[in-house]
């Protein structure tokens, strides 16, 4: 229908957008084009409307538990309109680029773990995430042991002992434990044009 075509045409990533997105991110124009190939594939897996819906993200992330899926989706969905647009997709993926500043990765990881978006990582949130993973993995852990693990973690990270981890406490803690950021870098992004060579058929520029 005409409305669908008009809506789709406004979502098509034209050359100026590609250039702007490349300027705003760690990606070259060709890499943004290659990521657009990935975006198109993800965004048509259930509803072919050029937008990633939550169920499409769930499908791509192999049926992750709701707790994590909701948080990841919220971080992608900057406009809070219930869908992920290509621009929002690039804004998140650039944080995961191997060359992205470490502070951006630290901030993003903080936002992931701050499930209730209170500006702090609280004990209940950590408990909730660990319990969800235990359930996901069919692992059994006594409440006593789980409490001990969380107590030990907060004893290390919560330096002012107010029962919650602030952004600054998180920054200091992560810099002491850099392995916590390993999921925040996706090596694929360094070679994305090779991973999605089909962008060449639609490319508008040569890098």
């Amino acid at each position: 229908c005409f409305d669908c075509r008009r809506r789709r045409s406004t979502q098509t990533c034209q050359h100026p957008d590609l250039t702007r997105l490349a300027h705003e991110s760690q990606f070259s124009v060709n890499e943004v084009e290659a990521l657009h190939e990935l975006f198109k594939k993800l965004s048509c897996s259930i509803i072919d409307d050029g937008l990633i819906h939550k169920e499409e993200l769930r499908l791509a992330l192999f049926q992750a538990p709701n707790l994590f899926l909701d948080r990841v989706f919220d971080l992608f969905d900057e406009k809070k309109n219930g869908v992920i647009e290509f621009e929002e997709f690039i804004h998140v993926l650039t944080v995961f680029h191997p060359s992205a500043p470490i502070q951006e990765k630290i901030d993003f990881a903080f936002r992931l773990y701050d499930l209730r978006q209170t500006g702090f990582i609280e004990r209940e949130e950590v408990h909730q995430m660990v319990a969800a993973i235990l359930k996901e993995s069919d692992m059994l852990l006594s409440d006593e042991l789980l409490t001990m693990i969380i107590d030990k973690t907060f004893a290390d990270a919560d330096s002012d002992k107010d029962g919650k981890i602030s952004k600054e406490e998180w920054r200091v803690y992560v810099l002491e434990h850099p392995s916590l950021l390993k999921n925040m870098t996706l090596p694929y992004l360094k070679d994305v044009t090779t991973a999605f060579p089909s962008f060449i058929f639609n490319t508008e520029v040569e890098d």
Partner: peptide
């Protein structure tokens, strides 16, 4: 091995691991 809750979450959570986006390509 997992005496740190965040270590446990980042090692075990598939939900926060965006590499699956590329693996599904």
């Amino acid at each position: 091995k997992f005496f740190n809750a965040f270590e446990f979450i980042s090692s075990m959570s598939s939900g926060f691991d965006l590499s699956s986006l590329f693996e599904s390509k």
